[in-house]
Nucleic acid binder design. Structure first.
Lengths: 239, 239
DNA sequence: TGATGACCAGATTAGCGCTTTGGTCATCAG
DNA sequence: CTGATGACCAAAGCGCTAATCTGGTCATCA
């Protein structure tokens, strides 16, 4: 921990992030101005720039904070039941969590109404990266412990897994309304698809999950830290 | 066959469609004007409207003609080797064919540069419909002949299959350049994914494909007819 | 010393003629 | 008489300018 931030700084950052999130969801990225965000957070505009380098970074932080919350749920579930580390279980939860959080849903469904030009902003990329979805380290642990299909190398998933996930996140507006499914059913379909496509045909013994779980959890804990730093960490950084 | 069109009418329609396709690919939907299309096809503007009700319908016909060509290849392959009717083989070919034909590639990758506001035109929908992708009838035949995974009903695929396909068609611009794959490798990944996700774990005996092939081919022949009619058929229809 | 908001340049929007274009139909050629 | 045409029209699109807004800075202040 190099530069732990004082609590009141974190609190102020949270107030600003709350205001930014609120305005983002109500008015969309374009109309959520720094002036209005600062006003609602009860701080001066300059103060916002004491926390984040730019408007883009501020909104990235909004997403990063949501990612922290989501991954927190994921890790909690994994601690409670090691089988949750299975790719299809993780992705099922990821899908449900992401779709239930308006900010993350906007990001993962690429909602142009909400995100507007933030969609094509480089600052958004880390929020949709392979790291957030399923990092190499995570997939490496699964592969090492026989939790992926035989002859499936982790790098095969670099292309294929994002393709499938992107499909499930984005397909809705393209389907006729009569094909609509409850969210949970979509998540189940996704889980089924991933399990058959990428996991061993016969379910691995529970012991194998127990073995792998600590390492998986360590990986995710690290990711959570990364995103938490990205949320608050720019304030004291040098330019 | 109610109103078979004279050959010279078909030829003229093809000339117009050629010009429309050329301009669509070179200039994009927005700038491909009816005037210029008519000029290049060597006909008066009014003549275009003797074939299609509107500009949108004309461009739909451009896509429908491509679909006919693509499905023609598919059917030919199926006649040559009954195993081609397998979902993963069909979709592999579909993906490769669609990605190799500029018009279809623009449609399936939702290329905004080329399609512009044709993207949100209702006339485009039948070109991306479940029918073109994998009709209920086709999936029904597969299910009846044991070519789908046990306990997988065709209607389960209504949502899931388009989701996966859409993902593979659309993921490219979202991935880091270093993850880029040759087209054929993407098609192979897609085929692998679909086979494991939706087909029986042990490959069905060849005889089963031979049995099912004629019915599958009949289904596709019907779809080809539908799209062919959609390509040329509006000329003599009443308003 | 940390917070602020007046300030500025550059980007965005609104207003407004001018041009382009999808679609029609009176006219004409064969 | 039939099928093809292009002049024509309303409406949408475009380019231009002036006026407004907003991200980001920094001198000033509590």
């Amino acid at each position: 921990m190099v530069d732990q931030q004082p609590t009141d700084q974190i609190e102020r950052a949270d107030r600003i992030l709350d205001a930014a999130k609120e305005l983002l969801l109500r008015w969309g990225y374009r109309r959520a101005t720094i002036d209005e965000i600062a006003r609602r957070a009860g701080v001066g505009k300059g103060t916002v720039y004491l926390h984040w380098r730019s408007r883009e970074q501020l909104f990235f932080a909004v997403g990063a904070r949501e990612a922290v919350a989501m991954l927190g749920e994921v890790v909690t579930a994994m601690r409670h039941d090691p089988q949750e580390i299975a790719l299809h279980r993780y992705m099922r939860r990821f899908f449900l969590e992401a779709m239930s959080r308006p900010v993350l849903r906007a990001i993962f469904t690429r909602d142009a109404e909400v995100l507007d030009r933030f969609l094509s902003s480089p600052a958004r990329r880390p929020l949709q990266s392979a790291k957030l979805l399923a990092s190499r380290e995570y997939l490496g642990v699964l592969a090492d412990d026989g939790l992926l299909r035989a002859r499936l190398r982790p790098e095969d998933l670099d292309y294929t897994l994002p393709a499938v996930m992107f499909g499930f996140f984005g397909i809705d507006p393209l389907l006729a309304p009569e094909v609509a499914l409850p969210l949970v059913d979509k998540a189940d379909q996704l889980a089924d698809t991933l399990r058959h496509a990428f996991e061993p045909a016969k379910p691995p013994p529970p012991a194998r999950f127990a073995t792998a779980a600590p390492r998986v959890i360590a990986v995710f804990d690290r990711h959570v830290d990364d995103y938490r730093r990205a949320t608050y960490g720019t304030a004291t950084e040098k330019r």
